[in-house]
Design a protein around this nucleic acid. Structure first.
Lengths: 125, 125
DNA sequence: AAATATCGTTTACACCCGTAAACATAGTAC
DNA sequence: GTACTATGTTTACGGGTGTAAACGATATTT
């Protein structure tokens, strides 16, 4: 259970693709990201390599193609990022974090109702 | 309305002090942070200097002492940090962010009720 | 078998950031 | 006015990160 490696912002764009659909071939990853991010193929290959080195992804050879799989789940990633953000910016005060986001962001009525249900559920545990 | 400068994690420790009580003298800042963060005085002086250069703080001379004032409010800082975190990690989906934090963090009953009130208020606008 | 395409690997480079030493300046004390 | 003190300013340096070129290896095509 090695704790998740640190995934940088740029690297996370690769991970986000894999979390949506897995596996993906190198060419799929490269073509999507060179569009979305305006990165050259070389840049994307660097990220794939770094992610591989830190065991955040793995790949399999299939003939002349390579298939990529994530080794770090989005759950783990979000958990780590949430924690560090919460501590860094709010000194761990979740209540304050919620309050601030509620002040600043707009939520659809539906979203609000979903949150209210979540809170009700939470109350009972 | 120049948009807020980027304040790094280490620098934010200085700002947090100023947001609590303002102004503070250099010696107050240095003594508090060398304790809390185990930084040398030189390190802290670097942060003060960088914050000054990017117009996040200002200072006034008072004899041989210097008094520091923040130029970036905590509100602005939180707003910026929240936005960038939300976009970077959640692609702007606030609802998902709330859901994830609710899953992971424990909230006191009182905190939950406060949030419920906030949500009710929010509904009406 | 030689050429080509598809990848991985190595190396590079500049900027940011945490950390800090060294130097400069201006009050204060003696 | 000379030494000391409190502080700002300049310079440094290594590691992380975004960005990428150059090189290498292997499978497909011809």
């Amino acid at each position: 259970m090695s704790n998740s490696p640190h995934i940088t912002e740029a690297e996370s764009e690769v991970m986000k693709l894999l979390w949506q659909k897995e596996p993906l071939s190198a060419s799929e990853i490269i073509s999507k990201l060179s569009d979305q991010m305006s990165w050259t193929d070389q840049t994307i290959k660097t990220f794939l390599n770094r992610l591989h080195k830190k065991h955040a992804i793995r790949f399999e050879k299939a003939g002349r193609n390579y298939l990529y799989f994530s080794l770090v789940s989005q759950e783990e990633y979000l958990k780590t990022e949430n924690r560090s953000f919460l501590d860094r910016v709010y000194n761990g005060a979740v209540g304050m974090l919620f309050t601030k986001f509620l002040e600043e962001e707009t939520l659809s009525e539906k979203a609000i109702e979903e949150l209210q249900q979540l809170l009700e559920k939470k109350k009972k545990s």
